[in-house]
Nucleic acid binder design. Structure first.
Length: 855
RNA sequence: GGGCGCAUAGCUCAGUUGGUUAGAGCGCUUCCCUUACAAGGAAGAGGCCGGCGGUUCGAGUCCGUUUGCGCCCACCA
């Protein structure tokens, strides 16, 4: 920590201070001087560690990111000034599906694992989205690495411009070898403890990306469709069901109604025949069937939705899967169809065309009752997909997360209680999510750019893989790609051969790696000293949409691996919404580009606005509000220029003695206490508010009041008191503002102080005298408003002289004001002695303006 | 359907454990080129604190209820 009481040898103040260029100037100097470098202290207590969210580099940063990362930085800067060594890394989430998609579009390629590797491959000059060049997995991954490196430069540059006090020496990427090794190591440990397992089960499946997706990645979207009323055939009559998915009739396993539904009770235990295909379908009872929905009786298919999965499991129905992984009906005619002929019209079609085809056939056969009724329903989509999810039965890796295990769920709920939430009510979201989990965490993805599973499977004599006993890598082998390396005890020549092995073809979902961010940054498997100094971490900041994903998944991993929370405190920021309070998104076309705002208004202005957004609260974007921040930054420059230009205080330094000076400093003492207390509870907004309120009244009232005296109008002793007070107040206020306005405060600091303000000590109340009056600042403000009011009402300049002034009010107030009459007369341009009239009323000023020849 | 949050000036928001006359900024009105600042500054107007009911000497604040908005989750035959 730099000694902050050491003024520079000389004071160098620019003629016209300006905000332009401060970001470039200071971010470079901070980088060169290692201002934010984490220096390992002796003990954990001296560290404040932050688990920074790694932004997805394939996307773009928007104002919401800027706000939320600023919130973290405010706390980081406060803690650093309080003497903590702040461990503040940055990460890039660069693996995963979003990157793959961006690479496909950017270079016009697509990954086809069967293609051979071409070491000289260069992407097409002009990408053609309709004719993407097929390339090998290795070529594809190389392009992913190349593009993410470019994207990461852009991100880093924006964060530096914004003034994030990140230690760039601790930069990580979720696709880096370290991250891969840690992800694989943690997975192997989960596996050995039985927390990770392989399972063949119905899975939510995206047909576009052809991968499984996890519960946390689901979103509901409106989806237009029709209700079709369709007849199944009981021996004596038709039984109508209503469905939006008639193309699934070939996969019907049962009709299901509620046990108490009198309409269908006689049918329970009997069977009906399906339309077109004549398959015998049992009619069964289950409590999840809802009598008031549709016809009150539902067709259960394998699988139309998650309820079907429940019915299929609980009623032990047969699997009659017709839907394949590409979203088409299978080409072969299913064996269970009694009347197979109609299926020919459906084979190989997408669900959409199959639906049209089967509706035609149902019309012809007379099984479609009435006209289809248009409906808009909410359907589950992959958050990045644009076709509804299907459910297919696949083999996937899962990690236990309490979704199927009461005891683990309870433990994870306990962890949520253990954690400090800012704001507190966000804990409910965590609990809602944990309580609502309906299955374990699916971590495998059938994709290419990601961390591979360190797993192989033995092939039997026929060449069939043995999924029951996977071969796991040993920790020494990590990171390992089973597509390129054989397992221990095998040679590469045995790959794919009967009696040999195959590698697990899947990769981990990106959340499976980012869920280990605390382990990755803190050096879990590579730096024990660092790990002990930084883990569990102090703070995990994130926006509220991420509670169910990243926040929860880190709690799961840390709980399973370490038996504790990964951090003490979860800080949740809100979103920046557009002025109509709509969520900002690309599809809405209301994205606000931060670079441009930063360039125009300056980082300090944007940060100032971000600091007004309290934790958890959404803020509408309003550029006018940011301009206020810019004005504050300008005011800091100008006020500082004035204060430092009034001439040096006497040597040796003496304490201020004028009552006005002492009163101002006493008031500032309270501000220091309040701002610090607010920061201690992560309430950066209140810290800013109290600081700023003081600063404006300091400029408007106090500086105006003492200006003449500081120039020397009342002699050297009085001037010295004012100058000392002004400089003390500036010294304190710059530091109070430093977390919010890091650039302008550093600029002013450099005019007259050594070192960086950001390594200076957070202001202490003990730096300020206590003696001053608590009442005087408000009384001065009242008198100034009175004097200015008179001039304003007369529409004259504030310079206009007052030839007679009478101040009335409580005797005690008058006593205090009398003591600074010289200052009052100077600021009000009062040419005669002030008349003091004690009354019971509030302070009042009556003044006569001196006659002037010109206005 | 369950949960959470919000409702205070035209707009964005403060308002600590109930206590004088409910605050700030933006915007608006009227002024002022004042040797820190005109990309400034001063003064001013503007509020039935969503509705109803209760507790209390006293309610923006506590309790109940209701309306509207937002978010999360569930359901979506």
């Amino acid at each position: 920590m730099t000694e902050n009481n050491a003024p520079s040898e000389s004071v160098l103040i620019p003629e016209r201070p300006s905000l332009e260029g401060l970001e470039a100037k200071w971010s470079q100097i901070w980088n060169e001087q290692g201002t934010y470098t984490f220096v390992r202290p002796k003990s954990r207590e001296q560290v404040f560690s932050i688990d920074t969210p790694p932004p997805t580099v394939s996307g773009s940063l928007h104002v919401g990111h800027v706000f939320s990362y600023t919130h973290t930085d405010l706390i980081a800067r406060y803690q650093r000034m309080c003497g903590k060594e702040v461990f503040y890394p940055m990460g890039w989430d660069d693996n995963g599906l979003p990157t793959e998609r961006r690479v496909q579009n950017f270079y016009g390629v697509r990954c086809v694992p069967s293609e051979p590797y071409d070491p000289d491959f260069t992407p097409p000059e002009k990408p053609d989205p309709k004719r993407q060049v097929p390339i090998s997995r290795k070529n594809f991954v190389e392009l992913c690495v190349k593009l993410t490196a470019i994207d990461e430069q852009v991100f880093e540059s924006l964060w530096r411009t914004l003034g994030l006090s990140v230690d760039w020496n601790h930069l990580y990427a979720t696709i880096s070898p370290v991250a891969q090794r840690i992800a694989q190591r943690a997975f192997l440990r989960n596996l050995s403890r039985g927390e990770a397992y392989l399972s063949q089960a119905p899975t939510l499946w995206d047909i576009t990306f052809q991968t499984a997706v996890a519960q946390a990645e689901l979103v509901d979207k409106d989806y237009a469709g029709n209700f079709y009323r369709i007849a199944f055939h009981a021996p004596d009559r038709p039984i109508y069901i209503e469905t939006t998915r008639p193309e699934l009739i070939p996969s019907v396993c049962a009709l299901i109604a509620h046990p108490s539904d009198e309409r269908y009770q006689p049918l329970f235990g009997t069977s009906v025949k399906s339309p077109l295909f004549d398959v015998e379908i049992p009619v069964l009872a289950h409590h999840l069937a809802e009598p008031d929905k549709g016809a009150g009786i539902a067709m259960c298919c394998t699988f139309g939705d998650l309820t079907d999965v429940t019915w299929w499991r609980e009623l032990q129905l047969p699997s009659r899967v017709v839907l394949t992984r590409d979203g088409r009906l299978q080409g072969d005619t299913p064996a269970w169809l009694t009347n197979a002929a109609p299926y020919a019209a459906l084979a190989g079609k997408t669900v959409f065309s199959a639906r049209e085809a089967i509706v035609e056939m149902l019309k012809e056969s007379g099984d479609l009752d009435g006209e289809p009724k248009p409906t808009t329903r909410q359907t589950k989509f992959f958050e990045k997909g644009d076709k509804p999810l299907e459910i297919v039965s696949t083999r996937q890796w899962y990690i236990r997360n309490g979704g199927r295990d009461e005891e683990l769920r309870e433990q994870l709920l306990r962890r949520g209680e253990e954690m400090t939430w800012v704001p507190e009510y966000m804990q409910h979201r965590y609990e809602d999510w944990v309580k609502g989990l309906n299955g374990d965490w699916l971590i495998s993805r059938q994709r290419f750019f990601g961390v591979p599973f360190p797993i192989w499977y033995r092939l039997d004599a026929e060449g069939n893989p043995d999924y029951a006993a996977p071969i796991a890598a040993t920790e020494e082998m990590l990171p390992v790609d089973p597509a390129n390396e054989p397992p221990t005890g095998y040679t590469e020549a045995q790959r794919g051969k009967p009696g040999g092995f195959i590698g697990d073809p899947d990769v981990m979902d990106t959340w499976a790696t980012s869920s280990l961010s605390p382990q990755i940054v803190c050096g879990w498997d590579y730096d024990e000293e660092l790990f002990n100094l930084t883990f569990p971490m102090d703070m995990a900041p994130q926006a509220h949409d991420i509670i169910r994903t990243w926040l929860f998944s880190r709690v799961v991993r840390s709980h399973l691996e370490h038996g504790k929370l990964p951090w003490k405190l979860g800080a949740i920021s809100g979103f920046v919404v557009d002025p109509d309070r709509k969520k900002i998104s690309k599809s809405q076309g209301n994205v606000i580009v931060p670079d441009e705002i930063l360039a125009r208004l300056g980082a300090d202005a944007v940060r100032w606005r971000a600091a007004l957004a309290r934790p958890g609260t959404d803020s509408p974007f309003d550029e006018n509000q940011m301009k206020v921040g810019r004005r504050l930054a300008m005011k800091v420059l100008n006020a500082s220029k004035f204060i430092l230009g009034t001439g040096s205080p006497l040597e040796p330094e003496t304490q201020p003695e004028n009552p006005a000076d002492l009163a101002m400093l006493a008031q500032l003492r309270t501000v220091v206490a309040d701002a610090g207390a607010a920061f201690e509870t992560y309430d950066y907004s209140t810290a800013l508010e109290v600081t700023e309120r003081f600063f404006w009244s300091f400029c408007d009232d106090y500086v105006e009041l003492v200006k003449e005296r500081a120039y020397g109008a009342q002699g050297e002793i009085q001037a010295n008191s004012a100058r000392t007070a002004l400089r003390t107040a500036l010294h304190i206020q710059l530091r109070l503002l430093a977390p919010f306005l890091p650039f302008v405060t550093e600029e002013v600091w450099s005019w007259w102080r050594e070192g960086s303000i950001h390594r200076a000590r957070w202001p202490q109340v003990t730096e300020l005298p206590e003696a001053g009056s608590r009442e005087l600042p408000d009384e001065v403000a009242a008198v100034l408003i009175g004097i200015r009011g008179v001039k304003s009402a007369a529409k004259v300049s504030m310079k206009t002289e007052i030839c007679r002034a009478e101040i009335s009010g409580a005797a005690k107030s008058l006593e205090r004001l009398k003591a600074i009459e010289a200052d009052l007369r100077a600021v009000g341009r009062i040419t005669a002695d002030i008349i003091w009239t004690p009354t019971e009323d509030r302070l009042q000023v009556v003044a006569d303006l001196a006659p002037t020849l010109t206005k």
